[in-house]
Simulated scan of single mutants.
Amino acid sequence: MLKDANPMKNAETHAGEALRGLLEKIPILQVKGIDTEAVSSDWAPDLIVQLLVDGRPHQLVCEYKSNGQPRYARSALLELLNYVAHRAPRATPVFIAPYISPAVRQLCEEKGVGYLDLAGNARIAFGGVFIERMVADKPAAQQRELKSLFRPKSAQVLRAMLREPGRAWRVTELSETSGVSLGHVSNVRTGLIDREWAHTSGDGLVLSAPNALLDAWRDSYTTPTGERLGFYTPLHGSTLETAARSALRADSGPGRAAFASFSAAQWLSPYARTGTHYFFADDEGLRKLQAALKLSPSSKGENVIITVPKDSGLLADTVEPAPGAVCTSPVQTYLDLSIAGERGAEAADHLRQERLSWPQ
């Protein structure tokens, strides 16, 4: 039973109940009690589970964290392992959190620590007992938290960092470069550090896992919000290319536009041509492209797709591999290709190998 003399916080109570519910489903296990350690100056686990395993006593020592991100999980695992090594060598350490990501689950397995999250994922092994349960969906709160890291304002910070993944950034520098407020940059900084995608050095914030960051961004990426317009152009080949580059040049007048998706990839890392040409543009940039490419609206047979995105940062994050060939950045092009069907995924993989390869 949970000791009434030292009641746990609500979250820890739920953790104890979830653990009990999991263990009681195993026929050879009998839960004799779930106790909390008395408060002391020394570190102690939040829960100690007294078990009978087919009649033999066994202990689980458990640490609960309200945040299961790698930054917090790693310290909890170290404390658990230290406690077991010095005070309960025959016990099994278990990490508990509201949600434990696949990366943290792998870390637990590598360290020999069991885990349980309140979403239903679990892996606990000791003696002849092996419990493993996987839940397909992330909790809604976790999905919202991750998506917030890739929303337009945050994405401007991430794109700046991924352009120079080895650079150490001060918060003020990131704010100035990305055009995002100091407070928002600080939130992104916290999110990156919590997931161990970045770390702090004496010189500032440095990406430590750009590949993991880009993987997570790709997996949660959706089509940018905005107006998607289909047109037909009678221009082809080098004539179309020359006209487009003339319209995209910075000195061609007000308005911004850029090659995007497959069209940007042809300049950044050629892989497979398509019969359709893709652009991002603001309203003035759209008018320039309409005039330069002799575009006419088309509900069928469109060969030019122009997206006018709500996120102006997409048009600020561009590269120019050749005069006038203004393209969405390699990161943005990769993300757009990744959701463009099977051929897009193949082109995205090629682009990543050529332009977005960083040391693991």
Rank of each mutant, 00 (worst) to 15 (best):
S201H: 07
A38D: 11
H184L: 13
A38W: 06
E145S: 15
M8F: 06
A322C: 06
L60T: 04
Q50S: 13
T172F: 01
A168I: 01
L51Y: 01
T13G: 05
P254A: 11
G179L: 08
F95Q: 02
A85E: 14
G301T: 13
Y232M: 05
L77P: 03
R195Q: 13
E63T: 02
G237W: 11
R245H: 07
T239M: 08
K32V: 07
R167A: 08
G120Y: 06
S299W: 10
A347C: 11
P152M: 12
Q59K: 09
R151K: 14
A122R: 03
A340R: 13
T200M: 07
E173P: 04
W358Q: 08
R273N: 04
E227F: 06
V304Q: 08
R144P: 00
P102I: 09
Y271R: 07
S246R: 14
F126E: 10
Y221R: 06
L213A: 10
P297I: 11
A325N: 06
R167L: 05
M8W: 07
V308S: 12
Q106Y: 00
A291G: 02
P70M: 05
Y221H: 15
V185R: 04
I124E: 00
K111Q: 14
R87K: 13
I100V: 15
G275F: 06
A348W: 03
P139E: 06
Q360L: 09
L29V: 11
A257M: 10
Y278D: 12
R355Q: 15
K138R: 12
S40L: 01
S41H: 10
K147C: 04
R20P: 00
L52H: 09
Y334D: 01
D215P: 03
E12P: 03
N6D: 12
R218M: 14
D4P: 09
W197R: 12
A291Y: 04
P45D: 04
E227W: 07
A88N: 02
S148D: 14
A212I: 01
D137E: 15
T274V: 13
R256Y: 03
R123A: 12
E320S: 15
E346H: 13
S181F: 03
L118K: 07
L315E: 09
W358H: 09
A168G: 02
A5S: 08
K138H: 02
Y64V: 10
H14M: 07
I306G: 08
L268N: 03
